[in-house]
Design a protein around this nucleic acid. Structure first.
Lengths: 252, 252
DNA sequence: TTTAAGATTTAGTCATGCCTAAACTTATAG
DNA sequence: CTATAAGTTTAGGCATGACTAAATCTTAAA
């Protein structure tokens, strides 16, 4: 009987690294540093270096790695990362729509399962859901081909005062924040306008049909991404294109 | 940041070992030898010994282990094994009923996922299914409490000729065999009578409403468990209670 | 331009879970 | 009641993926 652990890397670790590189580097495939990855993954920088070298040594390589200058996903690596991201978001939508999970509960379960569902199960889930475009937090689900449309999202905390906006997605990382958003009626599709706000304190915003306005902590506002509002082609004034890219890059 | 791999055993390996011990030792908790486990798990006997020692050293221990005399599950080990078995069978039923998996496809997917679903997901799936009692192959699903009713199953290959029987469950291990059974109309709940048969060759059986009889290979017959038929309290003549226990023990 | 701070990589260690080979039990046949 | 076969355990390795500590490279400030 041959050894089992001489094969290629098949662990969830690889998935986690690729996903992290995608999340930090964005679709633009910017270079990502070891330190950033270490922080994101909750691992020491030395561990990251080791793994990056292994990922670069794969055939085909998953990343292009230059010492001291970070990594960038190769086509293969990007494809794999997008597959895992598709799994994650499909699972979130499935857990939410079919198994009565609330949107603050789906992330952890999906995070675990995303590594282990087969392509067949992925397809069946997608079919059952009618090939959904977004997860419950509003994030776009990559297609099977790996296609993932770009969207000019901007963090609410960087959106100009007085300009109509619509919530496009919210971060799925903080369950307590998600519950708070539920309480306030903040979810993808809801119109929102910032009335006053500073970068360091809280914002005063008008939500949906509401006639009164509400205080929103900076933290909560940083978990909300918006796009130009329903009243025509309003353009965001504060965010330059770099910031917009940053926001788009912050994949959940 | 503390090391992550100094904690208790949390791998799927442990689950696999416990499940294997339950499957081989049956509910009666007979002792299981290292060799049997090695064969069942597809690993070397030496590897089994190592793991058994670790399982016995856990606190609380999952197994009671005496060298050269095999292992037996402790209460804790049995509970854990039944949990995993519940996951497996619930997942099979779920994949089959909700995601259009055929009964020959469910095993592999469930085998992988059973280790990673949370208690919450287990509960939601069970609720969605209406707390089913069996998986698609007819095997009983343990309750959350760990309760698993005993059932006096006998392999069809050991059932007496001429005595009416009903298929109670079929092995889920061989997809090709399952497809063949589908073709023949063999599934849990179907009445079946052995007309002639030897232990080494094929059986001739009458299936359900059918007026003609069908040849059944010994291999196929060994994957089918039956209980006393619908026409009253027929008692199996060939199988002694030991063999009956063996059949019951052969958990999938 | 030099240098110190910060980021990054190397080197060496550890736990897990598998392997092979060899030693050692237990059981069964002569 | 041995002796040999079968089953089991020990001993020594290896791959993976984490860790720490120390060395090295980059960058930005003096």
């Amino acid at each position: 009987m041959p050894p089992r652990n001489h094969g290629p890397y098949t662990t969830e670790s690889v998935d986690d690294y690729l996903k992290a590189i995608l999340e930090l580097g964005g679709l633009a495939e910017e270079r990502v540093t070891s330190n950033a990855l270490a922080q994101h993954l909750g691992v020491r920088a030395a561990s990251v270096t080791g793994m990056l070298q292994k990922l670069a040594a794969q055939k085909p390589p998953f990343v292009k790695y230059e010492k001291h200058h970070g990594v960038r996903l190769t086509a293969a690596g990007k494809m794999r990362a997008l597959e895992v991201l598709r799994h994650h978001r499909l699972l979130e939508r499935f857990l939410h729509d079919f198994l009565d999970y609330s949107w603050d509960e789906v992330h952890d379960e999906a995070e675990r399962l995303e590594h282990f569902i087969s392509e067949q199960l992925e397809d069946r889930i997608a079919a059952k859901l009618g090939d959904p475009e977004t997860d419950p937090h509003g994030h776009l689900i990559p297609e099977r081909s790996g296609a993932l449309p770009a969207r000019e999202e901007v963090l609410l905390s960087k959106w100009a005062c007085g300009v109509a906006a619509v919530i496009s997605s919210v971060s799925d990382r903080d369950p307590a924040a998600l519950r708070e958003m539920t309480r306030l009626g903040l979810k993808p599709g809801v119109a929102i306008t910032v009335e006053t706000g500073t970068r360091n304190a809280s914002l005063r915003v008008r939500i949906g049909e509401r006639s009164d306005s509400v205080r929103l902590s900076q933290m909560l506002a940083s978990g909300i991404s918006v796009i130009a509002g329903p009243n025509g082609r309003a353009r965001n004034l504060l965010a330059d294109s770099h910031e917009a890219n940053q926001a788009e890059s912050r994949l959940p």
